[in-house]
Every structure is written in C-alpha cells, then in structure tokens.
C-alpha cells in the first residue's frame, strides 16, 4: 500500500502503511498515533496545530494552499517554504513515499 513517513518532534520516524485515499494526512497521522499532533480544530483550517514541513520533492504534487491556509502558515514562527497544514493534504496514491515532518509548536 502507498506509504507515508512522518518525522516526529523527537526525530523518530513513523511509517504509515495503511493509507486511505481521501483521508487527510492529519487524519492518517492521528489514527496512527503520531505523538504531539494536536490538530485541535479537526481539520477546519482554524488552528494551525497540524503544521508540517513537506518533502520538497512532493510539493508540486499537492494542490496549492488556499489563502486561509497560507495566512495561517505565514504567521507561524516555524514557517518554511515547504510548510503546509496537514489537514489540507488529501491522501492520494501518487503521494506514495511522502515524507512530512511535524513542525514545532507555535
């Protein structure tokens, strides 16, 4: 099954093999128990507690961030060019091999 790798805040790697197309990367991480992921607003682009850095090789495979997402990220202390809200990345099989790093808490 197409695989997602998550780098945790302590630098550990978690491999998620049970990916589901349509689920968000946030939901996959939550259901696979990635520590320190809060995702407090449950994916409604309100909290930015699901902020990840995405493997740059995959950035072009992701739909562009809508304005609200960019605004939330722009004001984060840990903003990087490869920052995304994981709740806004819908899983699809082309993302096989995607690697994301949980950004530090703001």
């Amino acid at each position: 099954m197409p695989k997602l790798t998550v780098v945790t805040r302590t630098g550990d790697e978690i491999e998620i093999e049970q990916t589901r197309p349509g689920a968000s990367v946030m939901e996959l991480m939550r259901d696979h128990d990635v520590p320190d992921l809060l995702a407090l607003c449950g994916g409604s682009r309100s909290c930015a507690t699901c902020h990840v850095w995405v493997d740059t090789a995959f950035l072009s495979k992701l739909p562009e961030a809508v304005e609200e997402e960019s605004e939330l990220l722009d004001s984060s202390m840990h903003r990087q060019p490869n920052s995304r809200l994981s709740c806004q990345i819908k899983w699809k099989d082309e993302l096989d091999g995607l690697r994301v790093t949980l950004a530090p808490e703001d």
Binding site: E71, S75, D106
Partner: peptide, 9 residues
C-alpha cells in the same frame, strides 16, 4: 487568520 496567529504570539 494571519492576524489571529500573530495575536496569539
């Protein structure tokens, strides 16, 4: 949302 995030900080 940008103002909100900045306000928290």
């Amino acid at each position: 949302p940008a103002d909100h995030m900045l306000a928290r900080r």
